Amino acid sequence: MTTDRQIKVLIVDDHPLMRAGIAGEINAQRDMRVVAEGADGESAIELFRRHLPDITLMDLKLPHMNGIDCMTIIRTEFRHARIIVLTSIAGDVQMTRAFKAGAVGFLLKDTLRADLVNTIRLVHAGGRKIPEEIAQQIAEHAGEDILSTREIEVLRCVARGQSNKIIADKLTITEHTVKNHLKNILSKLNADDRTHAVTIALKRGYIDL
């Protein structure tokens, strides 16, 4: 049975089995139902416009357009949209970006079954949900200098194993400038070397492979 009082939920995740599991759990509840499912950011925007869900569950790693960019567009157009992030990581950088994009809740995929429906009800009622793991990650790095856009570009190139010369040519800067960026990156991340910097950046969510 469906009623207008049910919480309408949009699921956005590129894994069909994940969507199916979430949808099954939600549709088993009397007070909520899945109104649509999307596999990428672009379709999520169109589905949101069409169905105007009360709650959107969104993975951050999506093809074509990532979850943060998708949230930014949705929240610009629908400022009251309530979006819960689905994530398998707790990197402080990605979570902080998600906050700034308008996320009001987070669900860790490894505890999804236990927390899913209660988090949906909580967020729908106007609350926020931040798992302790994510709160600790954000608090641990609060006040630290963040990497600039250019520094992240350089770090992505380093993660691909590219030399300073190749990085300089690709970004149309000098090798000296690349070295300066790397020096700043190591300092901001408190890293010992290039490899260590990449490891930290992956863990914190600055970059992904």
Rank of each mutant, 00 (worst) to 15 (best):
Q137G: 05
A114T: 05
L155E: 03
D110P: 04
R128Y: 06
T72K: 15
T96L: 14
E151S: 02
T174F: 02
E133K: 03
I134Q: 05
G105N: 01
M95W: 04
L86H: 07
V85T: 10
I89R: 14
D92L: 00
S163M: 09
I83N: 09
I146Q: 14
C157M: 10
S148I: 05
K170L: 08
K109S: 00
A90H: 13
I167K: 10
G105V: 00
E140Y: 14
G126L: 06
T76G: 15
A125L: 04
K100W: 09
V154S: 07
L108I: 07
L171T: 10
E132P: 03
A125S: 08
A90K: 05
R156M: 01
I166W: 10
T177Q: 15
D115N: 02
R121V: 02
F99G: 11
V85Y: 13
E140K: 15
T72G: 11
Q94Y: 08
L86K: 10
I138S: 11
D145W: 09
C157E: 13
A159E: 06
L86R: 12
E133H: 00
A81V: 13
T174W: 07
L112I: 02
G105P: 03
C70V: 14
A135R: 10
E175F: 12
T111Y: 06
I167M: 07
C157D: 07
E144M: 08
K129E: 11
K165A: 14
Q136G: 08
I89D: 10
H141I: 02
S148Q: 04
L171V: 10
R121C: 03
L112A: 01
S163W: 06
R79M: 04
R156D: 01
K100F: 11
D145V: 07
A159P: 04
V178G: 14
L112C: 00
T72R: 15
R97A: 06
T177D: 12
Q162M: 05
F106Q: 01
G161I: 13
C70H: 13
Q136I: 15
E175I: 15
I134L: 00
Q162A: 05
N118C: 02
I74P: 08
Q94S: 07
R128E: 07
N164P: 00
I173F: 12
I146H: 11
K129F: 15
R113K: 10
S88D: 09
A159T: 09
L171H: 11
C157A: 07
T149K: 14
E140T: 14
L122R: 15
A98V: 00
N164A: 05
I146W: 12
T111A: 06
V93I: 01
L108W: 06
R113F: 05
V178S: 14
D92A: 05
A98L: 00
A101H: 05
P131G: 05
M95Q: 02
A114M: 03
G102K: 13
L147M: 03
D110K: 00
R156W: 04
